[in-house]
Design a protein around this nucleic acid. Structure first.
Lengths: 207, 207
DNA sequence: GCATGTGAAAATCTTCACAGCA
DNA sequence: TGCTGTGAAGATTTTCACATGC
C-alpha cells in the first residue's frame, strides 16, 4: 500500500465498524465480507474496503476479513488497545450522567478523578470517585492522566480547559456548548447533541 | 445566486452558527462580520460567507450581517422556526436524562408523550409527562407528532422504530447504539457519543 | 467463482482571489 | 477602505471498474 494520510472521514467510521464487528464477534462470526458488513451498517462495500485498505491489507480474497483480527487492528489504529486515564471536571447533572455512562470503559477510558468548585460536592463520592476541589486539578501532573472531560457550565469551560492543559492533558472531551481554545498539540472533541438533532427538521419532508 | 444543493457539511455547521449568533445577540451585537464570527468559532471567514451565500445574500458590504436577521434566516432554513412535537420511547436512565435535557425546548422541540414497556413505569409522571404503554404508540396517529426519540435497549430499537414510523413519524432521533432501517422518506439521526470520543486517542500525540 | 485491494474517474467540499458595493 | 458574494482552483472523499489472489 502506498502511504497516504488516512482521511478524517475514515477515522469517523472506524468506531462504527468496531461497534458492529464486536456484535458479529459476539454472535460467533469468524469471517465477514465487506458486503455482509455493508448490509448491516448501511455503507457501501467499496467504501468499507477502501477504509480498511488505508491501514494495510489483511482481508483474504474470496473469504473476507477475520473478525477478531479486524477488531484488534481497528483498536490499534484508534489507540484503543490501551487504558486511557481521564479526569472529569464539573459534577453537576451532566457530569454525573457522564460518570455513570458505561460507554467509557468499553473503549478503555478510565475516569480516575473528578473535580468541582462547589464545596458542598467536594468530598462526596460518586461512582466510586471522591470529588475534589477544582484547585486540585494541578495534582494530575505526572499521574499519566492524558484525557480531560469538561462538564462545567459554559462560562467556566475555557478556564477549566486551561487548567487541564496545564496539568498535562493532551485530549479533551468538551461537553460545554462552546468552543475552547487550546494549544495545537491538544485535541478537543466537542460533544453537543443539540447540534445533531437541530438538523433533523431540515431533512424531514414538509407536511 | 445560482441554485445549488446546500452541502450537508454546511447544514452541519448551521446549528453552530446559530448557537454562537444567539450568544452575540444576547450580548447586544447588532451586526457582525464573518471575520468576527470566525474568530469566535474557529472556522474560516470565507467558509462562513460561502455557507451563508448558499441561502441568499443578506449581508451588507462593508458592515457585515444583521445578527437578528441571520438568526431568523438560519432558523427558517433548518425549519426550527416552528414547534415540533416529539414522542419518546424508553424511559430508562437514558430516556429520563433526555426528557430532562433542556436543549430540546431551545430548538422548538416539544416532547408530548413518553412510552415504556415496563408496567411499573406506565402511569408514572416524569417531567410532566405520563408514561404510557408502548402498545399505545399507535395513538400518535393524527396527533401531528412527527419526531420520535428512541431510548430503548438495542434489541428493541428496530421494533420501536417500526411502530413510530407506522404512527406517522418522519424523523427519528436514535440513541440506541445500532442502525435502524426505515423507509427512505424517514430521516434518522443517530446519536451515540461513544462513537465521538472513541476517536480522541487517535488524535492525541503519542507520549 | 468469489471477494479483496487499488488506480482512476466522478462528485463533493474547501480555499482562494477578486469583483462589486456601501 | 472594509467587507460581502462568488466563480474558479485546489483538495479531499466517494464511487467505480477491474486486476489480483485464494
Amino acid at each position: 500500500m502506498n502511504y497516504r494520510k488516512i482521511p478524517d472521514e475514515t477515522i469517523k467510521r472506524l468506531p462504527i465498524y468496531l461497534r458492529d464487528l464486536t456484535g458479529f464477534s459476539r454472535e460467533g462470526y469468524k469471517n465477514i465480507s465487506s458486503k455482509e458488513l455493508s448490509g448491516h451498517l448501511g455503507a457501501n462495500p467499496w467504501q468499507i474496503r477502501k477504509d480498511f485498505s488505508y491501514f494495510g491489507a489483511f482481508g483474504t480474497c474470496g473469504v473476507g476479513y477475520d473478525v477478531e483480527k479486524l477488531i484488534t487492528q481497528i483498536k490499534k489504529i484508534l489507540k484503543l488497545d490501551t487504558i486511557h486515564k481521564a479526569a472529569l471536571v464539573g459534577v453537576g447533572n451532566l457530569g454525573s450522567a457522564v460518570l455513570a455512562y458505561p460507554g467509557f470503559t468499553m473503549y478503555g477510558f478510565e475516569i480516575v478523578a473528578a473535580f468541582d468548585n462547589d464545596p458542598k460536592k467536594v468530598g462526596k463520592k460518586t461512582n466510586g470517585i471522591t470529588v475534589q476541589d477544582v484547585s486540585k486539578i494541578s495534582n494530575l501532573k505526572n499521574k499519566d492522566v492524558k484525557i480531560g472531560i469538561i462538564t462545567v457550565p459554559r462560562q467556566a469551560s475555557q478556564k477549566t480547559a486551561d487548567a487541564l492543559v496545564n496539568s498535562g492533558v493532551t485530549g479533551i472531551l468538551n461537553f460545554s456548548p462552546c468552543r475552547i481554545k487550546v494549544p495545537k498539540k491538544v485535541k478537543v472533541i466537542t460533544i453537543n447533541i443539540a447540534l445533531d438533532f437541530a438538523r433533523l427538521p431540515y431533512y424531514m419532508p414538509a407536511r
